[in-house]
Computed example of a mutant assay.
Amino acid sequence: MKLLQKAFLLIALVLLCGVSYAQDGKQGWQIELKKIALDVTSTEVKHAKEYQDFSDARLNGDSQTAVRGNLDAISDYHAEHYLWTNELLMDYGRTKIRPVEGETLTNENADKILFTTGYTQRLWKVENFLGGFEAGPFANLGYETEFTKPDNSPRTRILRGTAGVKMFEGKYLKSLFAAVVGERDFTYSPNSTKLAWEAGLKIEQPVREDVTAKYSALFRDYLSASEKRPTDLDYEFAADARLEVELYKNLHLAPFISYYTAQAKDFGTRGENIYVGVSLSFSHIFKEAK
């Protein structure tokens, strides 16, 4: 809880650095396909069995195909004193390995569907700090699930409510928040009610024309749960960094690195996942708030 208090204090101190009541800014609906991306890699090795004694991995390696798709779409309403946000995130990845001998192996490396709707009060506006931004209290309601059911566990089903304060809509600072989280986990029976706190950050920095560096991070610390299970997490942390290059109009190429780690409550070994790649994506604004 000390980290949560520090996060709220940091936001409060920044708001004191020359704030005014937010009275202007974008208004109206903004409907946007923020990103639809597809990453595909394929390696096809023929007659690898005959070349097992050769040292060149290009001749004796396993054939494999990796596909990952990602979609991020929003439908937001900007009013004079508030912002109503709706966001759909979908992420799915699968790798198929065809070894020289033995059965074909298929492994999921990403599987998530998240819909979030939320209300943010546009209470303050900071003009001359960190490129300017707005700030205010917010509350979100979200539902998380997945495309496919894992072999050894039920499909994820989580209803999540979040309330806190955040900075948003800035030139560089797209989001900085601290919040209290309440979850109703329907994945296992009986259902479990969980309490946590979380903090998140999204930053965009123009590097040069048509090149933008994007950074994001999220930390969630679980405080309590009504049902104790071996799959309960103590905390989780995710971070992403990418350098987005505009190739043509709304088509982008972005080398990136994504990192995720989580600590279980019942044992001390921390799990980690690092994903490095290049993403080809498309974005489009269907209706822009003015």
Results as ranks from 00 to 15, higher is better:
Tyr77Asn: 02
Glu127Ile: 09
Asp151Ser: 15
Thr116Pro: 02
Glu288Arg: 11
Leu243Cys: 09
Lys112Tyr: 04
Glu134Arg: 08
Phe138Asp: 01
Arg184Gly: 03
Tyr51His: 06
Ile113Ser: 02
Lys26Val: 00
Lys112Met: 09
Gln205Ala: 04
Ser279Pro: 01
Asn273Thr: 13
Glu209Asp: 06
Phe115Cys: 03
Glu198Cys: 05
Arg155Gly: 07
Leu195Phe: 12
Thr106Ser: 15
Ser42Leu: 03
Lys46Gln: 10
Arg155Leu: 14
Asp72Pro: 05
Trp197Gln: 13
Tyr143Trp: 13
Leu233Arg: 04
Lys26Arg: 08
Gln23Phe: 10
Ala48Ile: 00
Asp151Lys: 14
Thr116Asn: 07
His252Lys: 07
Lys46Thr: 12
Glu80Asn: 08
Ser63Gln: 00
Phe8Leu: 13
Leu253Val: 10
Lys49Arg: 10
Ser175Ile: 15
Thr43Tyr: 06
Ile113His: 00
Thr120Val: 05
Tyr188Trp: 05
Ala135Met: 12
Ala7Arg: 02
Leu251Ser: 03
Phe129His: 11
Tyr222Trp: 05
Glu209Trp: 09
Ile113Val: 04
Ala289Asn: 00
Lys166Met: 15
Arg58His: 02
Phe177Val: 06
Glu44Gly: 08
Leu33Gln: 01
Lys96Ala: 11
Arg242His: 06
Lys96Asp: 13
Glu144Asn: 03
Phe177Met: 13
Lys49His: 08
Gly164Trp: 02
His47Ala: 13
Thr145Leu: 01
Lys26Glu: 10
Phe133Leu: 09
Phe177Gln: 15
Phe138Tyr: 10
Asp221Lys: 08
Asn273Ile: 13
Tyr248Val: 09
Asn107Gly: 11
Gly200Asp: 07
